[in-house]
Amino acid sequence: MTAAPVPKIRIRGLTKAFGPKRVLDGIDLDVPTGTSFVIIGGSGSGKSVLLRCILGLIEPDSGVIEIDGENVLTANAARREVLIERIGMLFQNGALFDSLPVWENVSFGLLAKRGRGNRITRAEARTRAATFLSQVGLDPSVGDLSPSELSGGMQKRVGLARAIASRPEILFFDEPTTGLDPIMGAVIDGLIVDCVKKLGSTAIAITHDMASARRIGDEAAMLYRGKLIWQGRAADLMDSGNPMVDQFTHGRREGPISMELRR
């Protein structure tokens, strides 16, 4: 045994089926501290389910999920909450709280940690929210709007601001740039890279955008039929040598992956 450093996230043999449908079928994954990991895969291949399993939002059928070497699935409820608190998540659909104004969405995590050594007034939280909003390219005046008054891309950026606001050790991004224009997409990618490099966070990002994948990711993997069929450097995504990954990243109709359009 070599004394390899404990990965931030370590997954072994993770399986999850919904009824007869095996969505995750033995996932093994190591994400070292401070790296950002990109997961690609077809629509409905189980990428979001994988992140939800790690977050404890879906109970997997079997397997091991460790955060900092501690098994999340066997931890008791209280301990689990502590582990999960290290993770910030940008949901695929934003999942903004529509009963709260945008600024309160952004600073929700900060305010939630109030009274646990983190003294912050609502006025301060509001100022902080404005800073985060400008980081994701939104005017601070957006803070007073309700989430339903925002465009889809704006909602995504608010979701991103909310995820990074409490500076979590681990960040999950579920399609951070889908629905954004290319320039804003590049800005958001830059922001994600900043978070990982400057704050030393560990990130897992799901994306369908290959340019974005190479910009964000240090490492990458492809999920297909419940398994990670390829894992390597994100820079190699476009010429991985794996025929399935090649077909996917180049968007070819013909290849080993036959889209099951009619089942």
Partner: peptide, 21 residues
Amino acid sequence: AEIGTMRVTDQIDALRTLSTH
């Protein structure tokens, strides 16, 4: 209706990730 909408739009899951039960 309000809580149900929060459930189906992942807002309840989002609460969990923001240190809120």
